[in-house]
Design a protein around this nucleic acid. Structure first.
Length: 645
DNA sequence: TAGAATGAAAC
DNA sequence: GTTTCATTCTA
């Protein structure tokens, strides 16, 4: 280890040193800085003394210098470990820049988050709320202290989550291998050499076998800007380490390995949605869990800051992962054209020149070729597409006026959808209980009676219009609930509401097996947080066991089509009627699958604001999945509510 | 872009 | 044992 820590004397190196030294010193600084925290001290004391020496700093120094000269290799973590084209194009050396690899860089795959990082993310907003203006390093300190003070049991929860994330990550990127950038060999001058090869090896990309080309003298000729065969030449100048991957990833298809579990079949790519605020909804970083992933969320960063979307999970991460590939139809094909007035239909039926939400793909052929029932057709229509569309018709609540701070609260409306109504109810009840006893945040959950759907074979437009009318009223009530701070006990009301669903007992019975908490304490917990501890920070949450999706599909299936509307247009018309009512902030979709089918892990799709949880037909929700859902939901609510305040 | 925390993973 | 990087976002 005692090698090469002689400071470099090269000018270039010196230039790089300042920053690397700063960074590397942070460790020493931390250790040498007296801290009043016993915990911190404990930690300091257990640090090996050799760490106080300088070799490490110098190593880092060299590493960064080399990296700078090398054209850093962020993509070294890519599954293929291929040399990034960037490594040549970003190099400013006139000798190197002309070589441009023809392949595209692999998207950066972030490491799975560790327990602390998850914990930090989860608590960051709360800390900010309590300490406005605090900078991140300080937040890290606070959360670090908090973390250390947590019980082993609590830490275990986060560790489990991290393990789950790791497992998902592994499943999603089987070839991924963590490859931290390593310091180059000691003794090599940063200015030199071994990195500045003059051989062709420097340009040999393992993926294309060295099919690099030599561009004209100017590294980035104007004329080349629009040339598709050349990779974007300048990723890194202004972009963040994560966003700089975006240009590359937008070229990935849904079928790319990385998104292989994204939205199922490529149906989503067929959906034609209006270019409405695509900034928010079309962006879906992939998460290990949700091809969103969950790990996936969020609209593109605004100036590297958080998304400005109305209510977006604060911890929208994974910007480095691919956005959903949605093909937008031309502006005039919008589902709801600006001039479509106030009444549906948004489009005339069978207007072949205007794109339907369903492009000519599989859906249309089903519509036109087989005499399947509307229900059947709609069942085959990807639920994500339906939810996405509904999400654009019926928006989540957004306050129009800023109430006085004392009255300010923003809860959430969560719709639980799915074909298996019993499972939907079970999950709704579980979620209600889960939120009620959340140890991190106080919630005031409430299960609300969902829109009534016709249970007989037929229904009429009038029935549906009546329902919609009722829900305009319900909409106001829901908004009131989620924006009213808890001041009076509401449990009885909540319970009554929940009980209206009738299956409470069954649900509880099921829960015994479903593992969440083997103890009965969970059920003993109040169904709402409306106790003496209720305060202005208790977040009201409305849970709807089925909502607009189920209602619109049910009515579309039961109201006969007697005109030229196609099945999907018919449903779309129904869906559009929800316009003007408040939509869910988040939809949880229970996706049932056959025993044989592989279980799907909960996936959060931020672009659609949909969290999918799998459940085996006639089976139970698994503990791990429920835990995940609880985590994702609370993360979502916290991120969302923080955003709105 | 460093920094602040902790921990996993790779050397 | 050491180093990098996962997250976040301001100075």
């Amino acid at each position: 280890m005692q090698v090469g820590h002689t400071p470099s004397n090269s000018a270039i190196d010196d230039a790089k040193i300042s920053r690397s030294v700063r960074k590397s010193n942070r460790i020493n600084d931390t250790r040498s800085t007296p801290t009043s925290s016993p915990l911190q001290r404990t930690k300091d004391e257990r640090l090996p003394s050799p760490a106080l020496t300088s070799p490490r700093s110098n190593k880092k120094r060299r590493a960064q210098s080399d990296e700078a000269l090398n054209g850093e290799d962020v993509d070294s973590t890519s599954p293929t470990d291929s040399r990034s084209p960037r490594s040549t194009t970003s190099n400013r050396s006139p000798e190197l820049s002309p070589h441009v690899c023809l392949c595209q860089a692999e998207p950066k795959i972030p490491r799975p988050r560790n327990p602390f990082i998850l914990y930090r993310q989860h608590h960051q907003q709360a800390i900010i709320a309590h300490h406005p203006g605090l900078n991140n390093p300080d937040i890290s300190k606070i959360i670090g202290e908090q973390w250390k003070a947590e019980s082993e049991e609590t830490k275990k929860v986060w560790q489990d989550l991290a393990l789950e994330e790791k497992a998902r990550h592994q499943e999603q990127y089987p070839d991924y291998r963590y490859k931290p950038r390593r310091v180059s060999k000691p003794g090599v001058s940063p200015l030199n050499p071994s990195v500045q090869h003059t051989t062709v090896e420097k340009y040999r990309c393992p993926r294309c076998g060295g099919r690099s080309i030599k561009t004209p003298t100017s590294p980035y000729p104007e004329s080349a800007a629009g040339t598709p065969i050349l990779p974007p030449p300048n990723y890194s100048e202004s972009s963040t380490p994560t966003t700089r991957y975006l240009p590359v990833m937008t070229t990935l298809s849904l079928e790319s390995p990385i998104r292989r579990r994204a939205h199922g079949p490529s149906n989503l790519s067929n959906i034609q949605v209006p270019p409405v605020r695509e900034d928010i909804t079309s962006y879906s970083p992939l998460t290990p869990g949700a091809k969103k992933r969950r790990f996936d969320y969020a609209p593109p960063p605004n100036n590297g800051r958080r998304p400005e979307g109305p209510y977006y999970p604060q911890y929208a991460r994974r910007d480095s992962l691919p956005p959903i590939q949605v093909r937008y139809s031309p502006p005039n094909s919008a589902i709801m054209p600006p001039n479509s007035a106030t009444m549906p239909p948004p489009r005339t039926p069978r207007d072949g020149r205007r794109n339907s939400i369903v492009e000519v793909g599989s859906m249309t052929s089903q519509n036109d070729q087989s005499p399947r029932s509307v229900e059947e057709v709609l069942m085959n229509f990807p639920y994500q597409n339906k939810i996405k569309l509904l999400g654009r018709i019926s928006l989540p609540y957004k306050e129009t006026a800023v109430p006085s701070p004392a009255l300010r609260i923003r809860g959430a409306i969560i719709a639980v959808e799915g074909d298996d109504v019993a499972a939907v109810r079970e999950l709704s009840q579980w979620l209600n209980d889960r939120l009620a006893k959340d140890s991190e945040t106080e919630y005031r959950p409430r299960i609300t009676e969902p829109p009534k759907v016709p249970n007989d074979e037929s229904a009429t437009f009038e029935d549906y219009l009546d329902l919609i009318k009722d829900w305009h009223g319900m909409s106001r009530e829901m908004i009131e609930y989620i924006t009213t701070p808890a001041t009076t006990p509401t449990s009885s009301q909540d319970s009554a509401s929940a009980d209206k669903n009738g299956d409470k007992d069954d649900v509880d019975a099921d829960r015994k097996d479903s593992a969440t908490s083997s103890d009965s304490s969970a059920r003993e917990a109040p169904s709402s947080g409306s106790t003496a501890t209720d305060g202005p920070n208790v977040k009201p949450v409305i849970i709807l066991p089925t909502f607009q999706l189920a209602a619109s599909v049910a009515y579309a299936s039961r109201i006969p089509i007697r005109d030229a509307y196609s099945c999907t247009d018919h449903w779309q018309w129904m869906a559009t009627l929800w316009r003007g009512t408040v939509g869910p902030d988040l939809t949880i979709y229970v996706k049932t699958h056959e025993k044989d089918a592989g279980a799907t892990k909960p996936e959060m799709d931020d672009a659609v604001r949909c969290l999918t949880i799998g459940k085996e037909k006639d089976g139970k929700f698994t503990d791990a999945d429920l835990r995940r859902v609880g985590f994702e939901v609370s993360e979502f609510i916290n991120g969302m509510t923080q955003k709105s305040t």
